[in-house]
Amino acid sequence: MAERPRLDLPKEQRRGLLPRFEVEDDAVGRVSEGIARFLGTPRFIVYLTVFCAVWLAWNVWGPENLHFDSASNGFTALTLVLSLQASYAAPLILLAQNRQTDRDRVSSEQDRQQAARNLADTEYLAREMAALRLALGETATRDFVRGELRNLLEELSARDEPDAGEAPARGAG
């Protein structure tokens, strides 16, 4: 039986005006983390400060015919550039935070699994130690065997030595 076409989907994919390109999610994440890391550094603050200072200096003291952002308008272009930078920085920082959260989740799961393995190993070793203690309790220790041998030697030497009241037997002669 032939599969019926779905009526809620277009018959074929339509092409848009702009070409579509596939980007690996991990690549986007790595780039966003790199940018977010850079945005959080003193170097970025210094670069941004120098950029703003040069912008302001050029538009205040530079050649009049080359000004592109007037002070009388409150440096509107600079405000727009900084707003654009902030509008891109916020989502990039959120992407980086989401990736870090995912890494933390994986790391904590691995830590939990390792802790469970360590607990199982510790419990196994404790059972083995208890079994060894029981086995040693039923076997003779070195000191016990030495003590028993001493007692036996004392008994044997006591048998071989004549009593103090008896005279040693003399041979006829």
Results as ranks from 00 to 15, higher is better:
S108N: 13
L9M: 13
T41D: 02
R150A: 12
L84F: 08
L92W: 04
N73T: 06
S108C: 09
E24I: 04
C52V: 06
L132R: 15
A86D: 06
R159W: 11
G137N: 14
E3K: 13
Q110I: 07
P63N: 09
L136C: 09
A135W: 02
A140C: 07
E148A: 12
V28R: 02
A96G: 13
E24T: 02
E109R: 15
E64G: 00
S70I: 09
V60S: 09
L66T: 15
V31N: 01
F44M: 10
E155H: 01
G16V: 06
L80Q: 04
L152V: 05
D111W: 10
A116Q: 15
L9Y: 10
L95W: 01
A57D: 11
E22K: 00
L149F: 05
S32I: 04
R146M: 02
E64N: 02
R30I: 14
E128Y: 03
A2G: 03
E161P: 01
E161V: 00
A126I: 00
L125T: 07
A71R: 10
Q110S: 06
L119N: 08
L84W: 07
A164M: 15
C52Q: 04
L17Y: 14
V28L: 15
E109W: 11
Q13Y: 12
A164N: 15
L125R: 14
T122A: 15
G62I: 15
L7V: 07
A135V: 00
D104L: 12
L153I: 14
N59C: 02
L149W: 07
D111N: 09
C52E: 07
R15H: 12
T49V: 10
E154P: 04
R4C: 00
T122L: 14
L119F: 05
M1E: 01
F21S: 11
L78E: 04
D69E: 05
L132G: 04
N65W: 05
R103C: 11
A57I: 14
F21P: 03
R14M: 08
R14K: 08
V81W: 01
V28K: 03
A135H: 02
R43N: 08
E12G: 02
L56T: 12
G16N: 05
R105K: 10
S157Q: 11
D25S: 09
V81F: 01
E64C: 02
R159L: 14
D102L: 13
G34Q: 07
L9P: 05
G147I: 04
G74E: 09
A158S: 12
N118M: 10
P10E: 00
L156K: 12
E161L: 04
A126L: 06
W55Y: 13
F144W: 07
V145E: 05
L48E: 11
